[in-house]
Nucleic acid binder design. Structure first.
Lengths: 191, 191
DNA sequence: TAGGTTATCTACCGTTTGGTAGATAGCGTG
DNA sequence: CACGCTATCTACCAAACGGTAGATAACCTA
């Protein structure tokens, strides 16, 4: 149990990244409330106190984990993103998300669980998810603007279906997430 | 804090029902993980130990709460249910659920949070939610059988959209749950 | 090599929580 | 009225957890 070479000292930036990475995996496997500070620390071969030197509280760690994933996702999307904000691009981006999420099921589950916990206004990540939702919807709406007569409700429809399908896929991996999405998108983007 | 007339002794069935009812309200207000055994008990004017006489553990209480709501929901649906298992009936039932859920937001939130927590196979309610999902889908599929060329995927579509829309409504009460659902259903059941 | 900075550790605290053991009292029945 | 059953209570426990205080050691620089 004791670390073999005694103490391992890292520069803060590097250590933070190591902690965030480990925490993300742990949370994805067991949810946030299922993992203790001690466990987060142990996964990096350190102690609670050591970890709390970098993140002042459990809550701060959680937020950092979320923001990190956002950054990574955003990067990946922006790379693929064609400049044109039209419906076809919107569909392509959404299909991209589906494919991406198919390959990282446990991480998707993490997000689902956290965002459900965070429905409680007192939850540390409540504001985070709310903001995120609004931004996502606004962005999608812009993409549909020139094409759909009611871009607002249309954006809600799309996001709702995607969220719901993903949720049902998490509940029952018998569902063909991608095929089901593509079929829906075919119909949706036909009109 | 002390109960005025000392001790209140109830027959088990009655007491169980009282506990379940109170627990449902508490959970709906603060989530499951946010309420302690003590709080559940206090809401009925008893102590933890007294409550644990009726439910051997916190976990057992949770399951009982879920099953009770199912029973109530089912009753309410069956009452309204016309015998014909056709698409129109399916839509009517689903609209009924939307209306019903609109009026009990916090309870819906409870279900959402619990079912997300329960994505973890180790969760006490995992099997419960999985079974529930399968039964619901099978039932809906039967209703679509005579009308839709692909009742299976259609049922998944419907449930996914409903789940997702509800989730987004919980996240942002600016969404018009009912109108958005009816518009979607109009299109879906038009073909 | 000496000294300072700080990343990390050991040890501890206070609280909360689920659960248990044994005493007590309300109710039905003989 | 006496007795037994059991619903309920009081008192307690052990474990888990988030967080803190102060000691210690790894690295950088002069």
């Amino acid at each position: 149990m004791t670390a073999s070479p005694g103490r391992r000292r890292l520069p803060p930036a590097e250590r933070r990244e190591e902690i965030l990475k480990a925490a993300t995996e742990l949370i994805a496997a067991s949810g946030f409330k299922g993992v203790t500070l001690e466990a987060f620390a142990a996964a990096c071969g350190m102690t609670k106190a050591g970890l709390l030197h970098h993140f002042r509280s459990r809550e701060e760690l959680l937020i950092a984990v979320l923001e990190r994933r956002d950054t990574l996702d955003l990067t990946s999307v922006v790379d693929t993103l064609e400049p044109a904000p039209d419906a076809a691009t919107a569909r392509a981006v959404m299909s991209g998300f589906v494919r991406r999420n198919l390959a990282q099921r446990s991480l998707v589950q993490l997000y689902t669980v956290l965002s459900a916990e965070a429905l409680d206004p007192a939850h540390p990540a409540h504001a985070y998810f709310r903001t995120r939702l609004h931004e996502g919807r606004a962005m999608l709406e812009r993409y549909l603007l020139a094409w759909h007569p009611h871009p607002g409700p249309a954006a809600v429809d799309l996001l709702a279906f995607l969220d719901g399908l993903q949720l049902n896929w998490l509940r029952d991996d018998g569902i063909d997430f991608l095929a089901q999405w593509e079929a829906f998108a075919d119909r949706f983007f036909a009109a």
